[in-house]
Amino acid sequence: MRIPCAALLGLMLLATAASPVQAGPCDAPAEWLDSDAPLPITAEAVREGALRILVVGSASVLGPGSSGPAAAWPARLEARLRALRPGLRVEVAVRGGRGLTAADMLTLLDAAANPPPHLVIWQAGTVEAARGVDTDWLATRLDAGLTKLGERGIDAVLMDQQFSRFMRANADIEPYRAVLRIAAATHGVPLFNRYELMQHWADNESIDLERTPREGRVAAADRLGECLGQSLAALILDAVADALVTRP
């Protein structure tokens, strides 16, 4: 009775292409693709026609379990932005790896120069939650990183953890999500609510890596990368639109 994953993906893509913007791509609830905060630097770069994005994060930026880095969400984000804004030159650089903590990522953020990015997508808080690092440690480093990016005139989007039943059962995920949420709110940067999105997809059984039989797992991971990339693109473009509206 199960529809093959790829077919389902195709159907969804068709559906999203055909229907107007009521729900987001991949049936993502629109509320999570609505940015709370504008991205003024990014908006400026989009207007000038060239946008440099830096993705910093732990393992998920490399798309583990998928068919390769080209199927991971950073690459899908790039593809989606190009598709939606044909005239825009988009470059997405990815820095990250397994087991990186926020402290490691601070060094990566500092190293990003020549030329500096307009926008940093900072995926954080997973490794800290898994290792049970004290939450204050994470909060301090996020605060330092976001403050510095602000001073350097670089926009930021924070991305939270993946939803996983295994993770939720074995790591105390909530305090770390709270830290990310509060950091985003206090620095006025958009938070990409990956956790809730993935939980939504798992609940309505559209993408559920943990319940996908082994043979379909790579396809499911690819689909996850595609949907995350598309949703993130929607969030960024919404924040860009917000910035253009709030400008005088």
Binding site: S58, A130, N170, A171, R214
Partner: peptide, 20 residues
Amino acid sequence: QVGLSAATLDAAIYIDELHL
């Protein structure tokens, strides 16, 4: 429990990433 639930969910990807 970590071992058991990793086995039942076949969640090698996650364990690997999480250092759990």
